[in-house]
Nucleic acid binder design. Structure first.
Length: 670
RNA sequence: CGGGAUGUGGCCCAGCCUGGUAGGGCACUGCGUUCGGGACGCAGGAGUCGCGCGUUCAAAUCGCGCCAUCCCGACCA
């Protein structure tokens, strides 16, 4: 019976329509909620009160959830919605007694967790690993997940997107149609059903949504549309790591826009870009939108939303003067001016004997030159055809740029046999002079003359090699990895580097999928047109991990108010003392009635244990109820982030805490 | 896929080199004392020592094979 009601409760919340009608009886059931239930004619009794066996006396007017100021606005941006309702929707049961919570905290750092966020999520009882890259979310973790989801929902809806829900299991045919059955690689988990039909677990949903839309949308009148879901994705990562940061099964919000034309698609993209900014701001994150490569999703351009953190897997380049910012993979370098007069190629080309000298370091040492004077020649295998890529000795090749310039699908460094084939020598002596491959040089070669490079002959290098005179270059392009201090491609000021965690990615897809899968419509002239698409992802779990990565200390997590599983924890320092328990209970009831998410630490534990746990799980505010202060009619309010402690008269505690929460939510949401 | 490491009660780890009765801390149960920053005492419960094969009178320990996990790299939304 309760299972049934519980489910209806879930559905209500999941579809974003209003609060749940009934709370699970085992969850905290403070006055405000119970009153609401009876108002709605629901059943269920509050066992907690019976168990607690304490008569509660509330301060005047505290018990009425309908009263003025009743409820805290959890969605500060969502101004039109009933504040109390919004507050409820952001909770999974409002308040809770610690003694009944499934919250296994740990003192030990798990041996296989490297990142602070990973360690803390395990220690704070948020997640448990089932198997490599696959995690369960425990109640405390799931509450935070739901907070992020809810913020995402509100902002997506606000931006005009509609929520739907698509299957995780997808037929091979759809992927064959888009071409990705072949191109996606081993990351796509494939399997067969009992009829030997092929399927995959969806790593993303472009195929499914495009199929859906092409079948249902036929006319320009039905456009534009933006559809999104929050779904579990599966990507069979080669190497899952860092807990939920890079795992195989994970929750993702993915949205897809369909427009009649380019201009519409641009507008959809802009709306999503702005919605993402609002989402991550509301999550309390220090983030940055950067230009990105669109990778295997494809499409014309994209931005990543990066949470700045030293532990981030991605390197981000940004300008110290203008607002240019890009993923290192994508970061550009402006073409240099050609300065012809400086150093004409005068000295003759010279071949020198360099036995066993292969690497740049060895060459420099042997010939007493610096890496800047050496040209590195790398032979790539691009879809089976060789290409010679030239960069300066002190630079690194950016393979993504090479791939984009060559326009190939597969790119890898050539094997020894291909090197021998195009250079006529073993690995380590490749150069551009006389090479049997297309030669593409990095911009940095434009003004180089008299450089050192391999001679395409074992144990020999060339000196004074100069482009044009000694070898031809079919194209100059931006091919190298940007370094700190390089000039910004927009304004030429030096760029800086930082690390980031990619929590969101917006792509302008163009017609990549709509063309291959024939998602077309009739325009006003009755002419068939191809829809222009965009897609937009947010890693939900990763956003939670990123928030922890960015906000923790040596005691544990420090949640921003918008993501905190509970806003306040009430800690009676000794649960056996009746007066402390009664005052705590009373505060608990009063705060709950205000719509504040409150956790009452009613466990029979020593104060130290409670303090440590409260800090570990990162509840932003703690009300400590101790004997001496209580005798003076006061309680202590401690702010997790700063450690600041304020004394509050008992009668002002509820107002004081509510005001603080409201102020904090407004600060983050504003 | 290449390189490295690890697998011993729920968690962290010792024991392995030098084969012989499976250990500690945390957690858990009971009782007592304690009670404002992860208490103490006493008494308990809990382990196929990753799996398999082999060597041996005897294997957590030695050998071989496999599996899993983690780290570095390759690779990559």
């Amino acid at each position: 019976m309760w299972a049934l009601r519980d489910r209806s409760c879930d559905v209500d919340e999941a579809d974003g329509e209003g609060p749940c009608r009934l709370h699970h009886p085992l969850e905290g059931c403070p006055d405000g909620l119970r009153r609401e239930r009876s108002r709605r004619g629901g059943g269920g009794r509050c066992r907690n009160r019976r168990r607690a066996g304490i008569r509660v006396s509330l301060p005047e007017g505290e018990g009425d959830p309908q009263g003025p100021g009743g409820g805290v606005r959890h969605g500060p941006v969502d101004g039109n919605r009933c504040a109390r309702r919004t507050g409820r929707r952001l909770t999974q049961g409002g308040s809770m007694r610690y003694s009944e919570l499934f919250l296994p905290t740990g003192r030990e750092v798990p041996s296989d967790a490297e990142l602070a966020s990973h360690q803390l999520m395990i220690r704070a009882g948020m997640i448990r690993k089932l198997t490599s890259g696959i995690y369960s979310y425990l109640p405390m973790g799931y509450r935070v997940i739901r907070k992020v989801e809810q913020i995402v929902r509100e902002e997506m809806n606000r931006a005009g997107a509609q929520e739907l829900f698509m299957p995780m299991v997808q037929p091979a045919e759809l992927w064959q149609e888009s071409g990705r059955w072949v191109h996606y690689g081993r990351e796509l988990l494939r399997f067969r059903d009992r009829h030997e039909r092929e399927y995959c677990l969806g790593p993303t949903h472009e195929e499914v949504i495009t199929d859906l839309v092409r079948n249902e949308i036929k006319t320009y009148r039905q456009l534009p549309r933006n559809l999104y879901q929050i779904q579990t994705k599966f990507r069979d990562e080669i190497r899952p790591r860092f807990g939920v940061m890079r795992c195989r099964e994970f929750a993702m919000k993915d949205a897809y826009s369909f427009d009649a034309n380019e201009a519409g698609a641009e507008e959809s993209y802009r709306k999503m870009f702005e919605a993402y900014g609002r989402i991550f701001r509301r999550c309390g994150l220090d983030f940055r939108a950067v230009e990105a490569d669109s990778g295997s999703i494809g499409g014309s351009y994209s931005h990543e939303f990066m949470v700045m953190a030293d532990s981030g897997e991605d390197a981000v380049v940004f300008c110290t003067a203008c607002d240019y910012a890009a993923n290192l993979e994508k970061a550009e370098i402006a073409p240099p001016e050609k300065t012809p007069s400086v150093d004409e190629a005068r000295l003759p080309l010279e071949e020198v004997h360099t036995p066993g000298v292969r690497t740049i370091e060895e060459v420099c040492a042997f010939l007493s030159v610096t890496p800047r004077e050496v040209v590195k020649t790398l032979i790539f295998n691009a879809d089976g055809k060789p290409a010679a890529i030239l960069v300066r000795g002190d630079h690194d090749v950016n393979e993504i740029k090479v791939k984009n310039v060559l326009g190939c699908d597969e790119l890898e460094l050539a094997m020894d046999d291909m090197i021998l084939d195009v250079t006529g020598s073993p690995r380590g002596f490749a150069g551009a002079v006389g090479i049997r491959a297309r030669v593409i040089a990095d911009y940095s070669l434009i003004n180089m003359t008299h450089c050192v490079m391999g001679a395409n002959r074992e144990d020999y290098h060339l000196k004074n090699a100069s482009p044009e005179r000694d070898f031809s270059v079919s194209a100059y392009a931006d091919l190298r990895v940007v370094r700190a201090g390089d000039p910004c491609p927009r304004c030429a000021a030096p760029v800086r580097m930082a690390r980031g965690i990619e929590v969101g990615h917006v792509f302008k897809l163009g017609t990549k999928y709509s063309r291959s899968m024939r998602a077309v419509y009739l325009d006003a002239a009755g002419k068939e047109q191809t829809m222009v698409m965009g897609c937009y992802g947010i890693g939900i779990g990763r956003t939670v991990a990123a928030a922890i990565e960015q906000s923790h200390d040596d005691q544990g997590i420090v949640w921003p108010m918008t993501l905190a599983p509970y806003a306040v924890i009430i800690t009676p320092v000794n649960s056996n003392e009746e007066t402390l328990a009664r005052a705590s209970e009373s505060l608990y009831q009063a705060l709950s009635a205000r719509g504040v998410e409150v956790l009452l630490d009613d466990r029979d534990e020593r104060a130290g244990v409670k303090f440590k746990d409260a800090d570990l799980i990162g509840i932003p505010l703690r009300i400590t109820v101790g004997p001496k202060k209580l005798a003076e009619g006061r309680v202590e309010l401690r702010i997790r982030r700063t450690g600041e402690v304020r004394m509050l008269p008992l009668g002002e505690a509820v107002d004081g805490v509510s005001d603080l929460i409201r102020a904090e939510l407004e600060r983050i949401g504003g």
